[in-house]
Structure formats: C-alpha cells, structure tokens
Amino acid sequence: MLQRIYDWIDDRVDVTPLWRDVADHEVPEHVNPGHHFSAFVYCFGGLTFFTVVIQILSGMFLTMYYVPDIVNAHASVEYLQSDVAYGMIVRGMHHWGASVVIVMVFLHTLRVFFTGSYKKPREINWVVGVLLFFIILGLGFTGYLLPWDMKAYFATQVGLEIAETVPVIGELLYTLLAGGEFIGAQTLTRFFAIHVFFLPGALLALVAVHFIMIRRQGISGPL
C-alpha cells in the first residue's frame, strides 16, 4: 500500500533522486568512527544539529502554553511545568538542551579548528559557522528572559548593560533591545519575538547554507 502511494507520487514528481542523493552519499572512511574510533570527533556537527532540532521542537510545544506578557509569563511557565503532563520533561529538554547546544557547538568548533578544516576553500563556511554561534548565543540570551523570574530579569539587566557599554551606539542599542528605557513589558514581547521568530528563521537559513556548502566542498581531510 505505502509502496503504491510512493510509486504513484514518484511517477509524477520523481522524488527518488532527492533522497537517493543523500542516502547514497558515502561517508568517507576517515570520518567514520566504525573505522577509526577517534573519528567520533566528526560527529559533533551532527550532534549540534540534533540538539538544535530538539530545541526547535520542544520550543514550539512550549509556545502552546507560554504567554509573553509580564502578568502571565511566570504563571504560565509554572503551570506548564507543574500541571501539564510531561511539562517538566518538555521544559527540561528546552532548558538543558540550551546548554547542550552550546557545548556541542564548542566541541564541533574545536574539531574544525584542530583538523584545519577552516582553510581554503572552506573559509566561508567557518564564517557562517561563527554567525551560527552568535545566533545560538542570541537564542540563549533572549530565551533566558522568557520565564520572567528574578534570574531572568537580572541576567537581562546585566546583558543589556553590557550592550550599553558599546562605544557611541551603546545607549541606542540598549533602548532598541529593551524596547524602551527600562526592562519591562516591551522587553519581554520583544525578546519573545526575537527568540521564536527572528533568530530561529536566521538559524535555519544559515544551517541550510552551511550544509549546502559542506556537500559542495566535501568533508576535509584525512589529516
């Protein structure tokens, strides 16, 4: 049955080459931990992507209960964590996953650095990778405010004051990020929008660029 549905679609739009291209692509021996165990360091890029997917999925589900408003934000997080089935798990995935993403990005960057994979012709992908790192830091920073508790508030206070120390444009930057002269209702909605729409959009776009370039240029090595 499934086979026939697949064939029917394939007959018309020829989808087989699309996934064949990915499925038949050989993993080079020097990055395959089955051949050389030490090659596991090449897994960190994929693990970064995996944790990003978990962040996006769990974040989408959190948004079903979360309210980006100063009156209700904290109460909604408390409710989804303590009263909704599996709330503690889904929030836990997002909460701990946020740190795991950073760790994975860091390990992936170390691998790229020590295998010299940033060298010609892969300079652009290093730059894209650095942008991805900043986007992920941005997601961590904006997400941290969302539970709207003391920790969230003062972490943002400190973060925005760091932004304010930027020469010349510091004060403008503060006002732009806080949505006003102080951290309040407008900061929360702004951070929410940045956290769930702007940065994930940019993240997915750059991840696509990252992967397309990897297919074009192949994995570097062996050493």
Partner: peptide, 15 residues
C-alpha cells in the same frame, strides 16, 4: 522518546 513527551504535553487538555 523525543516526540512522545511533547505530544502528550500538547494533548493534555483532552485528558
């Protein structure tokens, strides 16, 4: 293991 908690979380109002 990843998806099941999220789905149960989402359908909680039904249950």
């Amino acid at each position: 293991g990843v998806v099941m908690p999220m789905v149960r979380f989402a359908v909680d109002p039904l249950l």
